Amino acid sequence: MDSTVQAWVDGWIVSRGAAPPVTEPWGCTIDVGTNGHVTRHVFGATGDDLDETAVRKVAGAVTGAGVWLKAFRDPSVVAGWLDGNWWIDPEPGCLMTVPLKPAPANAPDVPDGYRLRSWSRGGVTRVLIAAPDGSLAARGQIAPTGATAVADQIETAPEHRRKGLGSLVMRTLQIAAVRQGARTGVLAGTPAGRGLYEALGWEVVALLTSAKHCPRT
């Protein structure tokens, strides 16, 4: 399995509390156990190294709803390997990395009226930014697993975007990961989040296709 994909899998299962991955010749299978996301199959190769035959075989064996595929290649390619029972996100996600730097002397500034809190439990550090009225403004979490740390579930409420809150969440999470010994950050980002991550120095190492099995009735 590609080393960055492996690092992402290792951190993601800690972040989500998923079952340990079952190793397969083509990658791994992860039981997640939530409604609409029962299991996911993650292919270990990226780009042109991703094997079409393997993807077709794995996808063809899926019969139930709520099973996901994660394949690190452009959806415009992978979509041609799947039948009509798969919902495919038409926009490519991206596997990204960044070197993690030591924490600056001063903590990141929190905008006036907002409240930031972070805490760690079970190896996962979470960050919450509450709006002046107490509602959710932004959040995220990170799971260090040795030298790498996976950032996950980064979110900014629509009405609080363009205020630097996403950057504040990411910087706070990265500082926490460095303090736990991580040297490289890894994430699988959405198209909407890619601009934020790139502005913070993250680099794309592979495109990502996300597909969900939705069998026709």
Rank of each mutant, 00 (worst) to 15 (best):
S76I: 10
D31R: 15
T34W: 00
L116T: 13
I129E: 11
V22Y: 00
G93L: 02
A54L: 05
K163C: 06
V67M: 05
Q153C: 11
G164Y: 10
E203C: 11
V5G: 01
A131T: 09
A147S: 13
P92W: 05
P191W: 12
V77T: 15
A192T: 13
P158I: 09
Q6A: 14
W26L: 04
V32H: 04
E24W: 00
V186Q: 01
G193T: 05
V205A: 05
G195M: 07
A59N: 03
R115H: 10
G201W: 03
P90C: 13
T184Q: 02
H160M: 06
D74F: 02
P21D: 12
S118W: 04
T34I: 13
A130M: 01
L168Y: 07
L100F: 04
A103Y: 06
P102R: 01
K163F: 02
W68D: 08
V77K: 06
V110I: 15
D133F: 03
T184Y: 00
A45V: 01
T145S: 12
F43L: 06
A177Q: 07
K163R: 15
T39R: 15
P102M: 01
A103H: 01
T97C: 06
D89V: 06
P144V: 03
T156N: 08
E24K: 14
S210F: 08
A157R: 11
F72I: 00
G27Y: 11
S210A: 12
V42T: 12
G185P: 03
T156D: 08
V150F: 03
V77N: 08
A157D: 14
A192Q: 15
A59F: 07
A54N: 14
S118E: 11
Y197T: 10
I142E: 03
W68H: 15
T23N: 05
A59R: 07
Y197R: 07
V77Q: 12
A151S: 14
V127H: 09
Q6S: 14
T63E: 13
P158E: 10
G146D: 06
W86L: 07
G80Y: 01
G189V: 13
G166L: 01
A107D: 12
W87S: 12
I129L: 14
T4R: 05
W68S: 15
H41Q: 11
W8Y: 13
G93N: 00
G17E: 07
G146I: 03
W8T: 01
R73M: 09
A105S: 13
T34G: 02
T156V: 15
D112I: 13
W12M: 02
V124Y: 11
W81Q: 09
G166R: 00
Q141G: 03
A130C: 05
N35C: 01
V78I: 15
